[in-house]
Design a protein around this nucleic acid. Structure first.
Length: 573
DNA sequence: GCCGTTTTCGGCCCGACTGTTTTCAGTCG
């Protein structure tokens, strides 16, 4: 299997850690970190780009040298420079830097004075009380290291956005009631609507003498106060999530919002634009010399560098600043644009509600149509429909449609794409449907080429309309199966097929980067919830968040169309 | 090691908090 972008990024990040411990040129260290981030966030695999003969040094934060190193990693799977550095400096020191409160300097000191080279070494040393004897360390530092290292798991997981929302809501309600709090916004990746959130950044506008910080650390879910000052405090909640609260005066709120919403890369780019205009931009405002010239609102901050406000979902330094400069920011899709949902299940298979109940719930949301896409027979665990049961369901839906007012149910199915690329029900029954949704449910371990060919062959069937959850990934649970998405998207575009952005918060498959790729290729997308109950229809919001991060507009999304237009699109045959 | 409205050299974001030290280094975001 070709080397994944995340693997290349991991190598550069590890190298950056070790070089930092060795006190190498800090800007060189940063260059490796920037490159890692750039590669990790890139929609296309470096391996594919190289195969197509692309010049990697044209990518942001990648120069001649790193382009060559990426080539080496893609070809050989490793980087000689990293091996060389690891021969001097133990690789596991990089893991130690993941522990909160341990940076390159302390890790180096621990290594040099106590020969601590791993998390386990660190655990033993902290228990034995040797760490506090090192100059510059003390009892408190040792205590903290001990607690952190005991509870340390190598990969602290980011939580899904919808889970973060449930965690944040009661805390924000609590803080909102504190005297002196004028405004409160959850910033950070939460506000940028990233699919997962590492920690919560809560920004509060309040008077300087507000007691909000005292109240914050007293919140019932707080199990550890990591730091607490007048303007900034950080705690850990019972659920394991860290929360930062920052208090700023109202006059700085807009500047602070920009600053704490990020992304970091976006902010750095904004600041650089400011520097060119002799402006200093920080979380307190925009300053020319000592004079504040903007900062109360986000609009004023962006205006100070000659830009319109950029919505948080786009703030990733993925071209939004250039687009804003040219007044070519996308008009992002909104919930109001959505006229129906093209993927849901009923009690006939693994759903919980009846078609009628689903239709009523969709109508309540203001939709014009909803399609019923129960599983087909291959998905036996879900009691998938065979030919006979599907024909029966088609008749039921026809009957139901006569009674329904204001909403139409579309007759569909979620077909299984078999390993040979055929679909698991015959055309003779599929042709009775309004359209089809097709997906891979088994055989995730095929090679990338075979998996791609499988889906491409399936798309050759003229009844194939929408490819559902195109990579099969489950966030934090299952990696995407290897597949050449770019080839799939190009083929879909040629054949008049569409890709689904599965809005279920466990899937969000396509990723934001994949949405960007789809936009570039101009293949259109269905944002669908894959609802297994009437209440699941609410997940549309999650899909729209993701679509917006992927720059998608109303015209990129097919379920913004009227029913008649939609039916025209589905008529490949 | 990257980058360019200061373009092939000379910059590269910076303020808050903690602990240990007594004026600041280390870490974080």
């Amino acid at each position: 299997m070709p080397v994944r972008n995340s693997e290349i990024a991991d190598i550069f990040e590890k190298l950056a850690d070790l070089l930092e411990i060795e006190e190498s040129n800090p800007f060189r260290v940063r260059a490796y970190r920037n490159a890692a981030q750039s590669i990790r966030g890139h929609g296309k695999a470096m391996a594919d780009l190289l195969e197509q003969g692309a010049d990697l040094s044209e990518l942001p934060d990648i120069g001649e040298d790193l382009a060559e190193k990426i080539q080496t990693i893609v070809t050989t799977g490793e980087l000689p420079l990293l091996n060389e550095v690891e021969s001097r400096t133990p690789a596991a020191l990089s893991d130690m830097m993941r522990i909160e409160g341990l940076g390159p300097k302390r890790v180096k000191t621990l290594y040099k004075t106590l020969d601590i080279k791993s998390i386990d070494d660190l655990k033993r040393a902290a228990r034995s009380g040797k760490i506090r004897e090192i100059p510059g360390f003390g009892k408190k530092t040792e205590d903290r290291i001990r607690t952190r290292v005991e509870g340390f798991t190598s990969h602290e997981q980011r939580v899904k956005l919808c889970v973060a929302e449930q965690i944040a809501e009661p805390l924000v309600d609590y803080l909102r009631k504190v005297k002196g709090v004028k405004d409160i916004v959850i910033a950070g990746s939460f506000r940028r609507r990233k699919e997962t959130v590492g920690d919560l950044d809560i920004l509060i506008a309040a008077a300087r003498d507000s007691i909000v910080m005292d109240r914050f650390v007293e919140f019932g879910e707080v199990v550890e106060v990591i730091s607490k000052g007048r303007t900034r405090a950080r705690v850990r909640l019972r659920c394991g999530m860290s929360v930062d609260v920052r208090v700023v005066p109202a006059v700085s709120f807009g500047a602070a919002l920009v600053y704490f919403t990020g992304s970091k890369q976006h902010n750095i780019a904004i600041r650089k634009m400011g520097v060119r205009r002799n402006l200093k931009i920080n979380e307190y405002g925009v300053f020319r010399d000592k004079k504040r010239v903007a900062g109360k609102s986000e609009k004023s901050v962006y205006a100070s560098v000659g830009l319109p406000v950029i919505v948080p979902e786009l703030r990733e330094n993925r071209g939004e600043l250039q687009a804003a400069r040219k007044n070519r920011l996308p008009h992002l899709i909104t919930m109001e644009d959505i006229r129906g949902d093209l993927h849901c299940h009923t009690r006939a298979t693994d759903g919980r509600d009846t078609p009628r109940r689903m239709a009523e719930a969709a109508a309540e949301r203001g939709y014009e149509y909803l399609s019923i896409n129960d599983h087909s027979k291959r998905v036996a665990v879900a009691n998938g429909l065979d030919r006979k049961r599907l024909l029966k369901q088609i008749k039921e839906i026809d009957k139901l449609n006569e009674k329904l007012d204001g909403i139409e149910l579309l007759k569909s199915v979620e077909l299984d794409i078999l390993q040979d690329g055929s679909l698991d029900l015959p055309d003779s029954v599929i042709k009775e449907l309004d359209f089809t949704v097709c997906a891979v449910h088994y055989g995730f371990n095929l090679s990338r080429r075979k998996q791609t060919d499988r889906v491409l062959r399936a798309m050759d069937n003229p009844y194939f309309n929408i490819l559902a959850h195109p990579t099969g990934r489950l966030i934090n649970e299952r990696e995407p199966y290897p597949i050449n998405l770019e080839a799939i998207m190009k083929a879909a575009k040629e054949r008049g097929c569409f890709l689904e952005l599965n809005a279920h918060p466990d899937r969000l498959d396509l990723t934001d980067d994949a949405c960007l790729l789809a936009k570039e290729i101009q293949v259109r997308i269905a944002v669908s919830t894959d609802a297994h109950s009437a209440s699941d229809l609410r997940y549309m919001r999650c899909g729209i968040d993701q679509a917006r991060r992927g720059w998608l507009e109303k015209t990129d999304i097919i379920n913004t169309l009227s029913l008649s237009k939609l039916k025209e699109l589905f008529a490949r045959r």
